[in-house]
Protein backbone atom coordinates (compact mmCIF):
# COMPACT_ATOMS: atom_id res chain seq x y z
CA UNK A 1 0.00 0.00 0.00
CA UNK A 2 2.23 2.77 -1.23
CA UNK A 3 -0.27 5.54 -1.13
CA UNK A 4 1.18 8.97 -1.48
CA UNK A 5 -0.65 11.23 0.87
CA UNK A 6 -1.41 14.75 -0.14
CA UNK A 7 0.73 15.96 2.70
CA UNK A 8 3.73 13.85 1.98
CA UNK A 9 6.51 13.82 4.47
CA UNK A 10 8.58 16.20 2.41
CA UNK A 11 5.83 18.79 2.16
CA UNK A 12 5.40 21.10 5.07
CA UNK A 13 2.09 22.90 5.12
CA UNK A 14 1.88 26.30 6.66
CA UNK A 15 -1.36 27.30 8.21
CA UNK A 16 -3.42 29.12 9.02
CA UNK A 17 -4.36 30.18 5.60
CA UNK A 18 -7.41 32.36 5.55
CA UNK A 19 -10.47 30.40 6.53
CA UNK A 20 -8.71 27.43 8.08
CA UNK A 21 -8.93 26.08 11.59
CA UNK A 22 -7.27 22.80 10.83
CA UNK A 23 -4.22 23.21 13.00
CA UNK A 24 -5.27 25.95 15.35
CA UNK A 25 -8.59 24.75 16.68
CA UNK A 26 -7.25 23.19 19.85
CA UNK A 27 -5.26 26.33 20.60
CA UNK A 28 -8.30 28.55 20.20
CA UNK A 29 -10.39 26.29 22.41
CA UNK A 30 -7.81 25.28 25.01
CA UNK A 31 -5.15 27.94 25.12
CA UNK A 32 -5.24 31.69 25.39
CA UNK A 33 -6.01 33.78 28.41
CA UNK A 34 -8.79 32.98 30.78
CA UNK A 35 -10.29 35.48 33.13
CA UNK A 36 -12.17 33.63 35.80
CA UNK A 37 -14.76 36.32 36.30
CA UNK A 38 -15.72 36.01 32.66
CA UNK A 39 -15.61 32.27 32.34
CA UNK A 40 -18.33 31.67 34.83
CA UNK A 41 -20.73 33.70 32.78
CA UNK A 42 -20.06 32.01 29.55
CA UNK A 43 -18.82 28.61 28.79
CA UNK A 44 -21.47 26.05 29.53
CA UNK A 45 -22.53 25.44 25.96
CA UNK A 46 -19.04 25.52 24.62
CA UNK A 47 -17.76 22.94 27.05
CA UNK A 48 -20.49 20.58 25.92
CA UNK A 49 -19.86 21.19 22.27
CA UNK A 50 -16.11 21.30 22.47
CA UNK A 51 -15.50 17.72 21.46
CA UNK A 52 -18.12 17.79 18.75
CA UNK A 53 -16.88 21.09 17.43
CA UNK A 54 -13.45 19.61 17.13
CA UNK A 55 -14.64 16.75 15.04
CA UNK A 56 -16.99 18.77 12.88
CA UNK A 57 -14.82 21.81 12.32
CA UNK A 58 -11.79 19.72 11.59
CA UNK A 59 -13.81 17.59 9.16
CA UNK A 60 -14.82 20.57 7.11
CA UNK A 61 -11.22 21.65 6.90
CA UNK A 62 -10.27 18.16 5.85
CA UNK A 63 -12.86 18.26 3.08
CA UNK A 64 -11.53 21.60 1.95
CA UNK A 65 -8.01 20.27 1.90
CA UNK A 66 -8.99 17.33 -0.22
CA UNK A 67 -10.96 19.54 -2.54
CA UNK A 68 -7.91 21.70 -2.92
CA UNK A 69 -5.75 18.67 -3.57
CA UNK A 70 -8.17 17.49 -6.23
CA UNK A 71 -8.24 20.84 -7.90
CA UNK A 72 -4.50 20.93 -8.02
CA UNK A 73 -4.38 17.47 -9.54
CA UNK A 74 -6.50 18.51 -12.50
CA UNK A 75 -3.90 21.06 -13.41
CA UNK A 76 -0.68 19.16 -13.16
CA UNK A 77 -1.05 15.49 -12.72
CA UNK A 78 -3.25 13.96 -15.39
CA UNK A 79 -0.42 12.34 -17.26
CA UNK A 80 2.42 12.15 -14.83
CA UNK A 81 1.55 10.75 -11.47
CA UNK A 82 0.03 7.36 -11.01
CA UNK A 83 -1.18 6.74 -7.51
CA UNK A 84 -2.73 10.00 -6.55
CA UNK A 85 -5.07 10.48 -9.51
CA UNK A 86 -6.16 6.88 -9.24
CA UNK A 87 -6.93 7.48 -5.67
CA UNK A 88 -9.09 10.48 -6.31
CA UNK A 89 -10.13 10.01 -9.91
CA UNK A 90 -13.14 7.74 -9.60
CA UNK A 91 -14.79 9.23 -6.62
CA UNK A 92 -14.09 12.84 -7.40
CA UNK A 93 -15.21 12.61 -10.99
CA UNK A 94 -18.61 11.33 -10.07
CA UNK A 95 -19.18 13.79 -7.28
CA UNK A 96 -20.57 11.09 -5.10
CA UNK A 97 -22.01 10.99 -1.65
CA UNK A 98 -20.21 11.25 1.60
CA UNK A 99 -19.84 7.56 2.03
CA UNK A 100 -17.73 7.27 -1.07
CA UNK A 101 -15.75 10.34 -0.24
CA UNK A 102 -15.09 8.84 3.08
CA UNK A 103 -13.92 5.65 1.49
CA UNK A 104 -11.54 7.58 -0.63
CA UNK A 105 -10.24 9.38 2.34
CA UNK A 106 -9.77 6.17 4.22
CA UNK A 107 -7.59 4.85 1.49
CA UNK A 108 -5.38 7.85 1.82
CA UNK A 109 -4.23 7.19 5.29
CA UNK A 110 -5.22 6.07 8.69
CA UNK A 111 -4.20 9.30 10.32
CA UNK A 112 -7.07 11.18 8.75
CA UNK A 113 -9.63 8.70 9.84
CA UNK A 114 -9.69 10.09 13.32
CA UNK A 115 -10.90 13.35 11.98
CA UNK A 116 -13.21 12.19 9.27
CA UNK A 117 -14.60 9.11 10.91
CA UNK A 118 -17.03 11.03 13.02
CA UNK A 119 -18.42 12.91 10.11
CA UNK A 120 -21.14 10.61 8.92
CA UNK A 121 -23.77 12.33 10.98
CA UNK A 122 -21.90 15.37 11.98
CA UNK A 123 -20.69 16.66 8.68
CA UNK A 124 -22.83 19.73 8.67
CA UNK A 125 -21.67 22.57 10.81
CA UNK A 126 -23.14 22.70 14.25
CA UNK A 127 -24.72 25.99 13.30
CA UNK A 128 -28.12 25.35 14.61
CA UNK A 129 -27.57 22.55 16.98
CA UNK A 130 -28.56 23.38 20.47
CA UNK A 131 -26.63 21.79 23.28
CA UNK A 132 -29.96 20.29 24.30
CA UNK A 133 -29.80 18.09 21.25
CA UNK A 134 -26.88 16.33 22.83
CA UNK A 135 -29.21 13.82 24.39
CA UNK A 136 -27.81 10.65 25.79
CA UNK A 137 -29.45 8.63 23.01
CA UNK A 138 -27.64 10.54 20.34
CA UNK A 139 -24.25 9.43 21.56
CA UNK A 140 -24.40 5.68 21.12
CA UNK A 141 -25.93 6.14 17.71
CA UNK A 142 -23.06 8.24 16.53
CA UNK A 143 -20.59 5.84 17.98
CA UNK A 144 -22.32 3.09 16.11
CA UNK A 145 -21.90 4.88 12.85
CA UNK A 146 -18.26 5.33 13.54
CA UNK A 147 -17.66 1.81 14.60
CA UNK A 148 -16.57 0.32 11.29
CA UNK A 149 -13.72 2.68 10.99
CA UNK A 150 -12.94 3.18 14.60
CA UNK A 151 -11.68 -0.18 15.63
CA UNK A 152 -8.03 0.39 14.89
CA UNK A 153 -8.23 3.78 16.39
CA UNK A 154 -9.70 2.62 19.63
CA UNK A 155 -7.04 0.04 19.86
CA UNK A 156 -4.47 2.75 19.60
CA UNK A 157 -6.20 4.98 22.05
CA UNK A 158 -6.27 2.17 24.51
CA UNK A 159 -2.54 2.29 24.66
CA UNK A 160 -2.25 5.92 25.44
Amino acid sequence: MATTTTYSSSEVVYVPRAGTLYDTLELILDRGMVIDVFVRVSLVGIEILKIDARIVVASVDTYLKFAEACNRLDLEATSRSTTVPEMFGGAAAKSVGKRKVRKTIESVGDKLRDVVGGSEEGDEEPEDRQPEEEEPEARPRRRGAKAQSAEGRRRREGER
Binding site: P16, L21, I28, L29, G45, I46, L49, P126, E127, P131
Partner: peptide, 12 residues
Protein backbone atom coordinates in the same frame (compact mmCIF):
# COMPACT_ATOMS: atom_id res chain seq x y z
CA UNK B 1 -22.62 31.69 22.16
CA UNK B 2 -21.51 28.33 20.87
CA UNK B 3 -18.38 26.94 19.29
CA UNK B 4 -19.58 27.45 15.73
CA UNK B 5 -17.10 27.18 12.95
CA UNK B 6 -17.72 30.70 11.73
CA UNK B 7 -17.37 32.15 15.23
CA UNK B 8 -14.14 30.25 15.84
CA UNK B 9 -12.87 31.57 12.55
CA UNK B 10 -13.90 35.11 13.41
CA UNK B 11 -12.13 34.86 16.76
CA UNK B 12 -8.99 33.65 15.01
Amino acid sequence: LRARRRDLLAHQ
